[in-house]
């Protein structure tokens, strides 16, 4: 959404309009800021109940994360809503399969799956499914949907976020930071393994910003300890890397504003014009 509140089509919505199956996988609440950017249009990140409604309404095929409370009516003890809407029931009526456990995740099939594995954000601990498991399953469902469905027959777009790397860095917690990065790294491996085997899939790995200004002034790979230094508890202006593998991955090289990343994805997919105001 622009500052004048004009909604703009997200890259996920543009891919969906192109005939691609779509998915969002996160470890925060499903209606947190990053997934909202891809699947909703609201004035404030704090509007999580409204974001949850839009994610369902926008018929994103796969939604995996936490934040069940924003999908439950206020009469429910776990609810984070101020109204009586039961979005789980609404999603089921709309064709979604609703799941809440790692075991259900193993067996679920598409084409529409809503997996909310915690009332609030995920703990990223067992028995929840790990980010890599959710990523592998999302890819399986989306690939199958894209293969079997005429409506979604042009491949798939999936956004996976290691949501809690940012949180660990805001807390200046190096152990949590390393653990969250490793969990994300396993998810990246899941995506890259699929892309390498498939040969037609582009994987782009990046961040929307750095947090904490982390540096390592002392220590070595041979030692068992390192010294870390945080320069802030907030976001920093440090450049972030962009890694890409797969068809046309060379288009993601160089130094540029991160708002260009969805534009470059749109170019690769032949989507134009992009960005454009939402009708």
């Amino acid at each position: 959404m622009a500052p004048d509140e004009t909604p703009y089509t997200s890259i996920l919505e543009a891919a969906q309009a192109r005939g691609m199956a779509t998915g969002l996988v996160v470890t925060c609440t499903m209606s947190h800021a990053t997934p909202a950017v891809f699947g909703a249009h609201v004035k404030s990140r704090k509007m999580e109940p409204e974001i949850a409604e839009q994610l369902i309404k926008n018929r994103i095929n796969v939604l995996f994360g936490g934040g069940r409370k924003y999908f439950l009516p206020k009469s429910h003890s776990d609810s984070g809503r101020k109204d009586d809407r039961d979005l789980l029931a609404e999603a089921e009526d709309a064709g979604y399969t609703i799941i809440q456990t790692a075991n259900q995740l193993r067996w679920v099939r598409g084409p529409f799956v809503l997996g909310l594995f915690q009332v609030d954000a995920l703990t990223t601990l067992k028995p929840e499914p790990m980010l890599a498991e959710m990523t592998r399953k999302a890819i399986d469902i989306l690939d199958e949907t894209a293969t079997d469905s005429r409506k979604y027959g042009r491949g798939f777009f999936l956004m996976v976020e290691g949501s809690q790397i940012d949180w660990a860095c805001h807390a200046n917690d190096p152990n949590a930071c390393v653990r969250q990065v490793l969990l994300f790294d396993e998810a990246v491996r899941a995506a890259v393994d699929f892309a390498v085997a498939d040969g037609r899939t582009l994987v782009v790995v990046t961040a929307d910003h750095e947090t904490g200004g982390l540096t390592i002034p002392e220590g070595s790979l041979k030692g068992d300890k390192i010294k870390v230094h945080w320069s802030t508890k907030g976001h920093s202006a440090s450049p972030v890397p962009v890694y890409a593998i797969g068809p046309k991955s060379e288009r993601f090289g160089g130094v540029y504003d991160n708002t260009e990343i969805p534009q470059r994805i749109a170019q690769v997919l032949g989507i134009k014009p992009f960005p454009q105001a939402r009708k």
Partner: peptide, 11 residues
């Protein structure tokens, strides 16, 4: 106290 609230992304 100064603490980070991840749900709201606020200090």
């Amino acid at each position: 106290e100064v603490r980070f609230d991840p749900a709201e992304h606020e200090f």
